[in-house]
Amino acid sequence: MTQTIAQMGTAMGPHVVEACRALFDAEQQVLAARVPVLAADCVYGPDPRHRLDLYRTGDGSGLPVVLFIHGGGFRMGDKGDGGSWANAAVARAMAEAGFLGAAMNYRLLPQARWPEGGEDVCAAVEWLRAHAAEFDGDPARIVVVGTSAGAVHIATALQLQGDLPVRGAVLLSGLYGYTPLDERDEVYYGPNADYPARMPRDAVVETTVPLFVAGAQFDPARFQQEFAGLLNERVQRHGVLPRAHYASGHNHYSMAMHIGTADRRLTDEIVDFVRDCVG
Rank of each mutant, 00 (worst) to 15 (best):
A169F: 02
A262C: 03
F218L: 02
E269L: 09
L241E: 15
R167L: 07
E269F: 10
N192Q: 14
V271F: 03
S254M: 04
L230Y: 03
P165F: 01
R201T: 09
L211M: 13
A203M: 11
V204I: 14
L181H: 00
L172P: 15
Y176A: 14
L231I: 01
G249E: 08
D219S: 01
D268C: 02
E186N: 11
R234T: 12
L266E: 05
P180K: 08
H252D: 00
R264Y: 15
P220M: 14
G215P: 12
L175G: 06
F212V: 11
A247M: 05
P200W: 13
Q225R: 07
L241T: 05
A216L: 00
Q224I: 09
S173N: 13
Y188N: 08
G168M: 06
L171D: 00
D194V: 14
A221C: 08
P165I: 04
A262S: 12
V209Q: 09
L175R: 10
E186T: 11
D219L: 05
G215R: 08
R264G: 10
D182H: 13
R265L: 02
V170T: 10
P180C: 07
E186L: 15
A228P: 11
D163L: 13
N192R: 06
S173K: 07
M199Q: 12
R184T: 09
N232Q: 05
P191D: 01
T207G: 09
Y189D: 00
E186P: 12
V271R: 01
P210A: 04
I270C: 08
A244E: 10
N251D: 02
D268K: 06
P220H: 06
T207L: 09
N232D: 14
R184L: 13
A221N: 13
A169R: 04
A203Y: 11
R265I: 03
E183K: 15
R201K: 12
A221E: 07
G215V: 06
H258K: 14
L164Y: 01
D219H: 00
T261F: 10
H250D: 02
Q236M: 09
V209S: 01
P180V: 10
